[in-house]
């Protein structure tokens, strides 16, 4: 039960950091607050028995922080302190309330029972264990690795990982095309007739 309390506190920390990130006026403190939320998430992953997620999360968080700080450090924030857009805020609050009620009913269960498994009792441990249990029972014979997550990622679902690599490649190409300097400079030097 203590681990539940720890996780609850850490999610509360993430909530506070997210609110600061969204509402504070200084962009640098907002970016740092997002970083704090990400590092808290990696600690939660460790507590939830997912070290394979905690380490990439820390790595991704550092790269995200570097990118965001690099983006805002040399650029002046000229956005005006506009009065709150009441219509959009009201829409978000209303939609968020409906969403929270629906989510609460899905977690608690109404009529046909909860659709989300209760915390601490995954489908794996229930009557219909499903595909995760099949992976867990056979992964050492099928793949020969000791880490089941890596066995799933690189053997059972290797095509997903190939697609992930494709997405990263496309994102890098997109960033390169958007940020390239050569074409712009040539255009400026040789004005087209």
């Amino acid at each position: 039960m203590t681990i539940d309390l720890f996780i609850l506190l850490l999610i509360g920390f993430m909530l506070a950091a997210g609110l600061i990130a969204v509402e504070t006026s200084d962009l640098l403190s907002a970016v740092i607050a997002v970083g704090a939320a990400g590092f808290a998430l990696s600690v939660i992953d460790l507590l939830l028995g997912a070290p394979d997620l905690a380490f990439p999360q820390v790595l991704v968080e550092i790269i995200t922080l570097v990118l965001l700080i690099r983006m805002i450090m040399t650029r002046r924030d000229t956005s005006r302190q506009t009065p709150r857009d009441t219509l959009r805020t009201a829409v978000v609050l209303l939609g968020g309330g409906v969403f929270l009620v629906a989510a609460f009913l899905a977690v608690v269960g109404l009529g046909a029972g909860a659709t989300v498994p209760a915390f601490g009792e995954p489908l794996l441990a229930g009557g219909h264990p499903g595909v995760s249990a099949a992976y867990l029972w056979q992964f050492d014979k099928d793949t020969g690795v000791a880490n089941c997550v890596m066995g799933i990622l690189l053997d059972y679902r290797a095509y997903d990982t190939l697609g992930e690599a494709t997405v990263i490649f496309v994102a890098i190409m997109g960033g390169y095309v958007v940020l390239r300097k050569v074409g712009r400079k040539r255009q400026a030097q040789e004005p087209s007739p």
Binding site: L48, G49, A50, D52, L53, P56, Q57, V60, I63, T64, L67, L68, M71, R75, P122, L123, L124, V131, S132, Y135, L136, C148, V149, I152, L153, R157, D160, T161, E164, V167, I168, A171, I172, G174, G175, V178, L179
Partner: peptide, 29 residues
């Protein structure tokens, strides 16, 4: 053990999230 399947898929999602952030930063710059 805890369920390994969501972990494997979330690992993919974390890395794709990084590339989404990087592309968004490039567009914003």
């Amino acid at each position: 053990a805890v369920d390994p399947l969501p972990q494997a898929l979330v690992l993919t999602s974390i890395v794709i999230g990084l590339s989404v952030t990087a592309l968004a930063v490039a567009l914003a710059v």
